[in-house]
Nucleic acid binder design. Structure first.
Length: 287
DNA sequence: AGCTCTTCCTGAAAGC
DNA sequence: TGCTTTCAGGAAGAGC
């Protein structure tokens, strides 16, 4: 499942080849995950990629129109969310088209940027430069950029369960189920803890844990749980270093207790019952 | 404000 | 063996 480290890995890969390339043509397969098909098909050809960025879990491909005949052309941002099974790849020329590939961007060097998405939970839209701020306003803070104090203020006043807040993209952008669970384990916090009731020390520990987990995951080029691959089609390796995620029934690496799974905020949540005691056990020890 | 349920979609795995 | 059912999940929307 592509979350911040996976999207960051894809973006870094695309950055090696995409900037400077001109889009020659766009072709579509199924389009039910595309917001404005006609706009993309009409406006992209002839534009040139000027930058590739990551915004939370979104990939943002910045496109400049040519400055033909002195008219100022708008700059577009092709925004892509990989959903559960999305892949954005730059295959070598002539490489066979993978099943469920639904968007093809022809490039002036003869290569092709392809979007493949088995379940089509992803999203693709074209945002004009003038509307970008509007789009960004709905996104939460960057987990790797937010400072410790701001992080404490943002979460410390909320009455929701901490796991739900970590998954809320309008609070923090980029954390999904894997990295929420891994961060909570590292900070030794149970997923159902109410954010408001956490101490300053615990919030600071969570802030540090998130940074450490995401940085580690980026270093290992993300987690390949089901379909995730980077822009070169390579899998990540961080799934081999998960401490709790999808380790239900297995021993905790820290204390050997059996990792458990509960549903929190509608998501499977993996935790160590000893390293991450429930709120109840924290208040009053049971003998 | 925040919770649960539902929807979208496909393939893997479990059930019969 | 082979068909059918269930499940997983990111995000959005409904309803409470």
């Amino acid at each position: 499942m592509p979350e911040l480290p996976e999207v960051e890995s894809v973006v870094r890969g695309l950055r090696l080849s995409l900037p400077g390339r001109t889009v020659t043509d766009v072709r579509f397969g199924k389009t039910d995950f595309v917001d404005n098909v006609a706009a993309i098909a009409e406006r992209l050809p002839g534009t040139r990629v000027s930058a590739v960025k990551r915004l939370g879990k979104f990939i943002c491909i910045e496109l400049d129109s040519g400055a033909a005949s002195g008219i100022t052309h708008p700059r577009y941002n092709l925004i892509i969310h990989l959903g559960m099974t999305g892949q954005l790849t730059l295959p070598r020329s002539g490489e066979a088209v993978a099943p469920h590939t639904h968007v093809f961007f022809g490039l002036d060097d003869g290569r092709e940027l392809r979007y493949t998405d088995i379940r089509r939970f992803g999203r693709m839209l074209l945002v004009q430069e003038s509307e970008l701020a509007n789009f960004l306003a709905r996104l939460g803070k960057e987990p790797l950029e937010i400072g410790a104090e701001e992080f404490c203020a943002l979460l410390g006043s909320r009455r929701a369960r901490i796991k739900a807040l970590l998954l809320d993209q309008s609070v923090l952008g980029g954390i999904g189920n894997i990295y929420a669970d891994e961060s909570l384990f590292r900070a030794r916090l149970h997923p159902t803890r109410i954010a408001e009731r956490l101490t300053k020390k615990q919030l600071l520990a969570l802030h540090a844990a998130i940074r450490a987990v995401l940085a580690d995951a980026i270093r290992f080029r993300g987690s390949s749980i089901s379909d995730y691959v980077d822009s070169n089609g390579n899998r990540g390796e961080f799934q081999l270093r998960h401490r709790v995620y999808q380790r239900e029934g297995k021993p905790c690496f820290r204390c050997k207790s059996t990792i458990r799974r509960v549903i929190v905020a509608g998501r499977s949540s993996h935790y160590c019952p000893r390293c991450q005691p429930t709120p109840r056990q924290t208040k009053k020890r049971i003998h």
